[in-house]
Every structure is written in structure tokens, then in C-alpha cells.
Design a protein around this nucleic acid. Structure first.
Lengths: 409, 409
DNA sequence: TTAGTTTGTTGGATCAACAGACTAAATCCG
DNA sequence: CGGATTTAGTCTGTTGATCCAACAAACTAA
């Protein structure tokens, strides 16, 4: 179906086919008009017309001649014109602010990350700094002569779907704050679309975009390990947001034996056995510098990796345990959602080599469907920049879905 | 975003708008052409043309004059013509075979249910009987002069999405059986579409269709209580199937203390504390006739209801416990999926009045989002006929999505 | 040089939605 | 009672997008 449930006319038809051609070239790479026609089922003449409009709008451009075919007149390659349009993703997190601008081809146009102690700074000052960071990126995009498709802000907390209000961000100590409104004011009521979304959701979208480049995957679960555990779900090619945007809260599944108390006030939460804190508690002594939360996370993780590589028994045993617990909770998710891929992000990705074996074993044992429901475990290599990429990606997705939206406004 | 935008032409445009008008009349009831035009945004002339084609195809019909408006020429009401098209849903379950035929308006055209001990009978004989049951329904539809949109078979087990093969049905003791193929042979290679789907998934669709009649709900979770526990998820208006169709296996979440051993071979599974067996174990003595699995489930449940109503302390305490455990597992689902509604089906619906209070309390305590993520708990009143209704519904949904498909074939 | 192949464009045909004029059928009001 | 007003639905012509078939262009191979 063209457009789900909405009355359509010539304009919608054209929009749909523009989107089909643009996506086709993006997903499958440069190719001639004739080939696009053959592969999409559109008529050659129609493709010519669509390509002309997309070139006009600065989304496609004519490339070199196609010399790959032996016989006949060679085609003129049509390729994505990345430079014309950019999307921006920006993130507030416990220890840093970050921003990235991607062009339509997915290339990084601008990138910045500053360490910030958000909890100490408070919302007002943090958002001031955050707005400066975003404004820099906006200017960088304009300096390159690109159009801005939109800005998406990632926050580590519950974001109300309709209003974009931040209901609760326990790790920041914030609650009931309209980040969108505050930022719009600070950015001078900008004309471009500005959205707010959950950090794990956006990281999931980034992982999805990356996986799709090589695989035909439309169902995945992302688990990001930090102090807590974040989760995101793509089901049937759509990000699962839930009725009010509060989906993906996997950290507090009551699967662990009552022991350590959790930040949420209960015991037995999953993140008390798979969070970074849990790993370090088990792998190190109290005064081990690796436990020091004032140090940079990446450096502390590097130390753990070093010990694991050196064969340190206590470290390896802790990793084994965390991997198994990861599998116990992961099996719940796989049983409910049957994803094609379980993506490990955050610190799980860094320590993946030691976590995967016990994790996969636990999955095999506990997933009801044969062969673990066919679920693969992969590590995301986007690191801690996944959320900002996903935020920028979501802006670009709007352009791919409706190439006519830009240029007019 | 559509999974993959498909190239569209005039025909697709027309199909889309036919679908829009048909759905509009179905969802919002009889109304004049002028009103349809106003509400959908289509042109008056276009609506006239679309309605004419839908009448031609036997999906809509002209009703009486609309006397509701005070002024001006009264409109001719256009209403759903239920009689023209039917969908059939049929179910194999542990204790019975069932079938229902629904017309486009959702009215029951034919219905039958026969008690059968499937595990004893074995696949061959069971499918023979099942085919007879379906054939009767097909004939009933033809006798009424209706076109058959399709048949969907519900089975209590894991159904592989692509092939429709039944991988594993522990409660039937079946595995790796191509139910679709077997049934097609027995039905004489019929021309109508024949699909196989998981019983809980189809029950979920039925609940979704029912809820949508009154509410704007697009995210829900269904829990059906039987010996085990089945689950189904609708997210963003789409049934969540997972990569291979194995989604919704909620019964084996390891949330219970290790005690009773589960049919899957492990201990601690959710269904060992919320399944019907668990309730009866706690509420009754060993030789209580209510425990006798040879008796009809509905009668045994009626006895439990009677004792609860009479204020029997042991029964009430058991219900309280099951309700709490239902909430503990339910909270996991609500945290992951953030549904607008949690629907209780199967025996949970029957005993709902006693389960809901402890269930809702557990949800409030354990769901991270404020106010339980806004999730309501409701009882389904479809009883054990939910799956067959959902199966018939799914056939009709295809007609609503593409009203041109019928008539031609 | 010529035949064969493939690309991309052109002009006409088709089809569906749209806009506005027009007819139809009711109520309101003098 | 009859004209004004209001709303419904149809009719006619226009617009716009795709498709089709023919054709010119560009290249290879013999």
C-alpha cells in the first residue's frame, strides 16, 4: 500500500515514487536510469522524470558513465548527492554532551563532544552549553552550503511521545522538563524541525541503519550497557515506541536474586547483575582505581580489557557471570520479540569478546524457539556515538520518506 | 515509514483510496458521500466514483436517507454490505477444534466447536476432522452467496513466519508439521488463500479489532491464561511477529522462585506461578474435582468463581497470589513495550474480578514510567473464541487493505 | 562501415483525482 | 404558497502522473 490509511492524490503518488527512487539509489548505490527502472518496476520515462526532479532538488546528481556493461550504449550513472542536505543529532548524557551532523550519504560533516558533569551543573546551565554546541553544528552545516533537514536531541530518560517532554531522567536527576521548548528558546525559535527522543531508541535506529547496509534485517533488539542498561527494539522495520514513548525499559526486569539494591529502590533488577557497576564490583576490590567513577569510562574499560587479555582469573570469572546474566535477561527479550539480531552496545560491545560465549549459551538454553529463534548476537561498533548518529539519521529518514519537503520551506 | 516503499501507479492510487473509503465507513459507520468527502479530504466527485465501485464489488450498499441534518438536501447513507464477503478462522487446540465464519461487518455467519482430544488422536486423524470442519464452514459461506476472502488456521505453537510450518506445539505433542500443506491437500487444493498462524497472535488481533471499535488504541499486550500462558503484542497498530514468527512466548520468563518444574524442563518459569495448574494447586486439595483435567475447563472455572464469590478464604488467597505474580511478569512486558492496554484473555478474563486488584498494584509498583506508563488493564469478553475470530478478521483485513483483490479471482 | 544492443528522451494515450458549475431535494421564511 | 437558502450528489472539463511505443544517441563487434 502506498500511504497507510490516508487519502492520496497525484502529489502523494509522485512523492511516493520520488522516495522510492531516492531510497533505491541510497541503498543500492549508483546506477543508470535504465537499471533503476528495471529494478523498481517503474517505467523508464517515469524514472527519467523522477531523477530530473531529484537532481533539481539537490538530492541526486549525474555521475560518470557506466562502463560495466559490455554491450550497447553505456548508461549515465545517477548517484546520491550527499552534500545538499544534512541532519543533526545531539545528546545530553551523564558525563558528556555530544553532537554530530551527517549528510545525506551518512558522512560526518561535523562532530564534537565535550565532557560535562550534568548532575552538578543543573538543567539551566547544561542546556545553555548544549544549545551552543547545537548552534555550532547548525552553522557548520550552513557554512558548507547544506540545507538542514532537522535536529534531534537524545536524552537518557523517559520522553513522552506526543509532547516530547522529558518525564524522568534518573541518571541526570531531572524530571518533568520540556527539553524541546527550552532548547527552542535558546536556539532562537529555529525554523527547522526539532525533536527530542530517548537515547537508547536513537542508538537502536543507528544500529538498524548500519545493519541494513549489509543484511536484510527488520527485527532487532539493542542492549546498551552503562551504569544502567538501556534497550531499544525495532520490529518489522519500525522503531517500537509504545503508546506514550516509554518503551524499552529493560533494566528493571526482576530476574536477579535479591541482593544488591537498585537505583529504582527495589532489589533483583537485571541491571544490578549486568550493569557496569555489577561487573566492577565482582571483578575488582573496593579501592581498585578501575572502580573510580571520576575517571573516564573508556579508560576504565580499557583496563578491564587488558586484564582479561592477560588472563586474570577474577576478571574472566566476572565477565563469565555477567555474560550469563545477560543471556538470562536477553532470553526474555528474544522469547517475547524474536529479533533476527541482538545488538550489544555501550560497554557490552567493548567487552563483547568475553561476554558473547556465555550469553549465547544462555540464549540457546532458554529460548523456546528452535535454535534460539535464529537470533544472532553482534557487537555494535558505533561506540558511545550511536545515539547522536541515530538522531541525525532520523532527520535524514524524513527526507528519504518525502523528498519534496525540503527546498520549499 | 513503509518497510520498503514500493513503486506506485494509477492502479495503486485507486486501490489506496478505495481502501480508505471502505475502512472509513467500516470504522465510523454509515454516512453520506458528502460527509465521507469532508472527513477523508477526498473530492466529492472522487468519493462518488469510489463508492460506486465499492457498491459494484458488493462491499458497500446504499442505505436510507440521512435525516439527521436539519437543513438542505438529505444525503443518501452509504453503509457496509456485510453479506458479500466472508473470512473464516479455524483453530486446533488441546481440547477442541473450532471454526467461525465472519462477514465483512463482523457478524457471525457460521460457528462450530467440537471437543476433541488432539494429543490422543494424533495429527493425521485430527487434521482429517479439522478439514471437515473447515469445509462445512466454506460451504455455509457459499450457501449464503458470499465470496470467501480466505481461511486462517490457528494453532497453539510456534509457526514459522515465511513457510507457515508448525515448528513446535508442546501442548499438542506435535512438531515440524506443515499444517498448511496437509490442510490444502485435504481441502482439495482450494483457490482461496489459506494461512496458518499462532493462536495467541490471532487472539491478540481479535482483541485489537474489538478495542478499536471504541478506543484509539494502537499498542496492546494480550495475556491468555490456560495451562500455560500465551502472549501477543500489537505495537503501533501492527501485530508483532518477530523475524521468524516466534514472538510472544512469555510463559517461560524466569521470574518465579525455583519450585515447581515447568513443561519446558526448567524451573522458575512465569507459567508455573500464573498458569491454571498453579492456581488450582494453591486453591484446592489434591483430590478436589476442580483439579480434574478430564472435566470441561469452563465448568471447573465456574466452580472456582463460585467459591470466590462465596468468600472462600483459600480460593481468594490463591487468586491474590496469582494476581500479584501476573503483575510481576506483566510489569516486565509493560516496561519493554509500554502498551496502552493490557488485555486479559482465557481464564484470566474469567477470574479477572479477583486478579485485577493485585495485578494493578504490582504494575504500579514495578513499572518505571509514571502512573504505570498509562497502561489500563481490561478483560477480553471474547472467551475461548478469540483466536478463531482473529483468524477470520485477518482475512477480512486483506479485503479492507485491497478491495480490488476480490471479484477478479 | 554496418548490424546489433542498450540508454534515455519524446509525444501521445490513459487514468484518477480535482475544481467548479449544475441539478436535486429538503427546510426556512415571508 | 413560493422563493430563498442550504446541502447532496452528478457532470464536464482540467490537471498531472504514469505508461507505452517509437526513436535518436552511443557504444561494441565483426
Amino acid at each position: 500500500m502506498v500511504i497507510r490509511g490516508v487519502a492520496a492524490d497525484h502529489v502523494a503518488l509522485r512523492r511516493n515514487n520520488l522516495s522510492v527512487v531516492l531510497r533505491h539509489v541510497h541503498d543500492l548505490g549508483p546506477r543508470s536510469r535504465a537499471r533503476i527502472a528495471e529494478e523498481t518496476g517503474l517505467n523508464k520515462a517515469t524514472v527519467s522524470s523522477l531523477v530530473a526532479e531529484l537532481v533539481e532538488r539537490g538530492l541526486l546528481r549525474e555521475g560518470s558513465a557506466d562502463s560495466s556493461r559490455a554491450l550497447g550504449r553505456p548508461g549515465q550513472l545517477v548517484e546520491l548527492d550527499g552534500t545538499g542536505v544534512c541532519g543533526i543529532g545531539a545528546e545530553i548524557n551523564v558525563e558528556y554532551l555530544a553532537v554530530v551532523a551527517l549528510d545525506l550519504a551518512g558522512n560526518v560533516v561535523h562532530e564534537k563532544r565535550v565532557p560535562v558533569d550534568v548532575a552538578h551543573l543543573g538543567p539551566g546551565t547544561t542546556l545553555d552549553r548544549f544549545a551552543e554546541l547545537v548552534q555550532e553544528a547548525v552553522e557548520a552545516v550552513h557554512l558548507r552550503g547544506g540545507q538542514l533537514a532537522g535536529v534531534t536531541l537524545a536524552v537518557p530518560g523517559l520522553v513522552e511521545g506526543e509532547t516530547g517532554e522529558l518525564k524522568l531522567a534518573p541518571n541526570l536527576g531531572w524530571s518533568d522538563l520540556s527539553v524541546a521548548k527550552e532548547m527552542r528558546t535558546r536556539l532562537g525559535e529555529p525554523a527547522y524541525p526539532l525533536h527530542v527522543d530517548n537515547e537508547a531508541n536513537l542508538a537502536t535506529l543507528a544500529a538498524y541503519a548500519e545493519l541494513r547496509e549489509t543484511d536484510e534485517v527488520h527485527d532487532l533488539v539493542l542492549l546498551t550497557g552503562a551504569v544502567g542498561v538501556g534497550g531499544g527494539v525495532v520490529a518489522g522495520g519500525h522503531l517500537l515506541r509504545g503508546a506514550h514513548g516509554y518503551s524499552g525499559e529493560v533494566g528493571h526486569m526482576p530476574v536477579a536474586p535479591p541482593g544488591q539494591s537498585c537505583g529504582c529502590g527495589r532489589t533483583g533488577c537485571w541491571e544490578t547483575v549486568v550493569g557496569l557497576t555489577a561487573l566492577l564490583r565482582q571483578a575488582t576490590d573496593r579501592h581498585d582505581p578501575v572502580r573510580d567513577p571520576r575517571l573516564d569510562v573508556e579508560q576504565r574499560l580499557a583496563a578491564v580489557v587488558e586484564r582479561a587479555e592477560a588472563g586474570d582469573v577474577r576478571t574472566l570469572s566476572a565477565l563469565q557471570d555477567v555474560g550469563t546474566w545477560l543471556g538470562i535477561g536477553g532470553a526474555i527479550l528474544v522469547n517475547i520479540l524474536n529479533p533476527a539480531v541482538l545488538v550489544l552496545g555501550g560497554y557490552f560491545a567493548v567487552l563483547g569478546p568475553w561476554l558473547e560465549e556465555p550469553l549465547e549459551q544462555a540464549l540457546r538454553e532458554r529460548v523456546l524457539a528452535p535454535d534460539g529463534g535464529g537470533c544472532r548476537v553482534v557487537r555494535s561498533d558505533l561506540g558511545f556515538g550511536a545515539a547522536v548518529r541515530g538522531g541525525a539519521q532520523i532527520c535524514l529518514d524524513h527526507v528519504f520518506a518525502d523528498p519534496t519537503r525540503l527546498g520549499e520551506s
